[in-house]
């Protein structure tokens, strides 16, 4: 395999890992605050639809992005209402949100655009377009470093760079700010946070809202950057892969990046079965590559490769008085 092919593979890894990463960090905020969220998938899907629809109507992808975040926040609010205010079952609420998004997006898309549950194709300013970083063209002919800069680092949409920046930002917020300390405490021992005079409900709603914003960006990226428009069920299990990545990363931000890059890489090579055959001299079934993130997650969960310990108060509604 030559350098250019490898770089192309890594380039598509980065593009495919971005929505996983954003959703994974979204889940990180929520679960660190003690709110399990298996509704990442649904939030992404809703955001993908509304961002594509609004970007098409206004011709402005940034307005589309905001609309996507709004859709995702709306579902977050339902999740918060069910699991924080009414102390319902967080897992069941997440399942409901996934179905709500899967159904509503198609029903509304059919009603608005009558194209069989999809939005019209986006083009021009209706999409996030690749950015050529300064000097990429000039440095292209420099050996080794030139192609790396031109092929791999330059030429992504702004959301990819944003997602990469959000990783250190998340680590800083969670581990170096008062807000982050409280957020993690709410997920480990909400009674202690309550005793300290901090609102558990408020902290959890804040975490769920951040989760909504990040899922919104992830969904908008799917429909306006990775692809040009919304199609039915376009999130295609990415929310669940992000969940898997979160466990794989043991609920730590930088590990999330590596886990998502790994799963993105698996998706990227699944698209290039010709390459595998050329390099390995034998064919790996694409189904095995599809299943690998899930199998790895089960192995991690089983505790055979280091133990994944979730936040202690995860999934438990907080009741002030017992």
């Amino acid at each position: 395999m030559d350098l250019i092919t490898l770089l192309q593979l890594l380039d598509s890894t980065l593009r495919l890992a971005t929505p996983l990463l954003l959703a994974c960090l979204a889940g990180l905020f929520s679960e660190r605050a003690g709110i399990f969220d298996i509704g990442l998938e649904g939030k992404m899907l809703a955001a993908a639809f509304l961002s594509a629809a609004v970007a098409y109507a206004t011709g402005n992808v940034w307005v589309g992005l905001l609309a996507g975040i709004f859709a995702s926040l709306l579902l977050s609010a339902i999740h918060g209402l069910a699991s924080i205010t009414f102390r319902g079952n967080q897992l069941i609420s997440g399942v409901a949100i996934n179905f709500l998004a899967a159904g509503l997006t198609v029903v509304i898309a059919q009603s608005w655009f009558a194209q069989g549950g999809r939005t019209p194709q986006l083009s021009g300013a209706g999409r996030f377009n690749p950015i050529t970083l300064p000097g990429a063209d000039a440095l292209r002919d420099v050996p080794i470093l030139g192609p790396i800069y031109y092929e791999l680092i330059s030429g992504h949409t702004i959301i990819v760079y944003m997602a990469l920046l959000i990783v250190p930002l998340t680590a800083w917020v969670l581990f170096s700010t008062r807000f982050g300390l409280r957020l993690r405490a709410v997920g480990e021992n909400p009674a202690a946070v309550d005793t300290a005079g901090v609102s558990v409900v408020g902290m959890r709603f804040a975490a769920v809202a951040i989760c909504g914003v990040l899922c919104g960006i992830a969904g908008a990226y799917l429909a306006t950057a990775l692809q040009a428009g919304f199609t039915k069920d376009m999130s295609a299990g990415r929310g669940y892969i992000a969940l898997a990545a979160l466990i794989f990363a043991k609920w730590r931000p930088v590990y999330c990046l590596w886990a998502c890059l790994l799963f993105g890489f698996l998706q990227a090579i699944a698209l290039r079965s010709d390459l595998i055959e050329r390099v390995l001299q034998f064919n790996i079934q694409s189904q095995l590559l599809d299943a690998l993130p899930y199998i790895l997650t089960v192995v991690i969960l089983a505790g055979f490769v280091g133990k994944a310990v979730p936040p202690r108060a995860g999934g438990e509604p907080y009741v002030k008085e017992r």
């Binding site: 069910a82 319902g88 069941i92 409901a96 179905f99 709500l100 899967a102 159904g103």
Partner: peptide
């Protein structure tokens, strides 16, 4: 699917 989601939501999470 929407109806199914609402039933799950109201009977399972918002009960």
């Amino acid at each position: 699917i929407v109806i199914q989601a609402l039933v799950i939501l109201f009977t399972g999470a918002l009960d």
